[in-house]
Design a protein around this nucleic acid. Structure first.
Lengths: 252, 252
DNA sequence: AAAATTACTTGATCCGGATCAAGAACATCT
DNA sequence: AGATGTTCTTGATCCGGATCAAGTAATTTT
């Protein structure tokens, strides 16, 4: 997600200690010396272009990857030929965690735009974490966070209306862009309506209609991939289920 | 899930090395000496009764827990007062992994029947794993597996029909009971229809109707909580989306 | 620059599953 | 055993969002 800035090369081949993402990324909370040791095992390759795969389901797993610029979609093929979009990943986010379990990638990752990544060979990371308790702790926390995030997604897909899903989606990007120093209310989405729908469990048409509706209600201004959130507080209200009467619905 | 056996006390206060679950559980793949060291930090309390909470959202996190007998439901309250069932857990399964991230339980766990658990104080587990690479590796694998499993759940909730969801649910229990030495085709479910529906993103009535329909189609025989699967191969076909024509639906 | 392809939007219709309603089977209590 | 409260089932109706269909706007190809 370059967010219409010119793609800069400053994020490429930058050591962790000089990287602006270090507060979001794996080195978060490590001491400078520990960051140095972590840095020594990280590989920084050339950038991927839109449509390039970082890895595919079935590939042998060797490295975790952190997005440093651009954005990535992860997805898994579902038995009947279609696919399930699992996530959209922004700079500082770690992907490939699901592959540790059996040393194989079970899903695929594809660049949505020009994208740079750091590769972290997992066997080396594992060795390092075994002599660096702070890194081990950080790894446990990151894995646990991933579990917690997927849990929220279960609630979204299991209980929320189309409207609530799209509002949640938009606010998630708003928050993540803000964390990364971009505008929380004015951004470009790098994925298609189809991909948004697939991710949220909705048809493309529904996503498109919701964008139109939200615009009609002055919640946002949208023109293709360019989104401007105009009423973030009301979007948060929608996320929480504007129809408060339905609270009894999912009680047991 | 005692599965109508008399609740035996053999699973209670049994050291890992003598526990029948050790091939499914945390000690999986560890050497006898390593199991001994792991065993030394594990606490085994008295059993929980139906309706007792193992922990609640908001509780301070201190221990991971492994079910040793019985069964447990995990759930998270969703903003509007209802709840989202996150999972049903059988002996050998580890719960509480989502709490590592911020040292707090973000969801709750409640016993569905008389249930025994092993408690593993996390700080001790962490220290141990930092001097036992095999244990660290096992932890990474377990956390990663959890991520992979939630991913499958996303596909279920995002793309599958009610029929496919219930078939998936039943086969999941079938497989897990089989792994544990019970019948794959004849078992008791310890949760209510309402809880099944909540977990699968369906209304109670839909779950009930589907059980009736599956029975009418001779896929299974059901009487309240007692389920006998009569045609497992056809259930697998249903899981894979019997309507093969819809394959194009979720393409991008 | 025209043609072809792909992405998005909008309208019309349909349907799977939710909701509403009521009864039946159990479980628990006294 | 009878009374009360749950849980489950079954039927009738409704609705949110999918699907179908067609047109428009972007993008890519030639």
């Amino acid at each position: 997600m370059t967010n219409r800035k010119v793609v800069s090369f400053e994020n490429i081949k930058v050591a962790c200690k000089n990287c602006s993402l270090s507060t979001l990324c794996l080195p978060m909370g490590l001491t400078p010396e520990d960051i140095e040791r972590l840095d020594s095992i990280i590989k920084r390759g050339r950038p991927y272009h839109r449509g390039d795969h970082l890895y595919r389901g079935g590939d042998k797993f060797h490295s975790l990857r952190v997005i440093t610029s651009g954005s990535v979609k992860t997805y898994s093929p579902n038995e009947d030929g279609g696919e399930q979009v699992l996530g959209f990943h922004l700079p500082g986010e770690l992907i490939g965690l699901d592959a540790i379990q059996d040393d194989n990638h079970n899903c695929s990752a594809i660049a949505l735009e020009t994208t740079a990544v750091c590769e972290i060979p997992f066997s080396q990371l594992e060795s390092l974490s075994s002599i660096m308790p702070s890194l081990q702790h950080q790894m446990y926390r990151l894995l646990s966070r991933e579990i917690g995030q997927e849990t929220e997604m279960l609630t979204l897909l299991g209980k929320k209306s189309a409207e609530e899903r799209l509002a949640t989606f938009l606010l998630s990007f708003s928050e993540r862009f803000k964390q990364r120093g971009f505008s929380a209310s004015d951004f470009f989405l790098s994925m298609s309506r189809h991909e948004i729908g697939n991710y949220l469990g909705l048809a493309v048409e529904t996503v498109s209609r919701l964008f139109t509706r939200f615009q009609d209600e002055s919640l946002l201004q949208v023109e293709r991939k360019h989104v401007q959130l105009l009423d973030i507080p009301r979007l948060y209200e929608i996320v929480q289920g504007s129809d408060r009467a339905k609270s009894s619905q999912s009680r047991i």
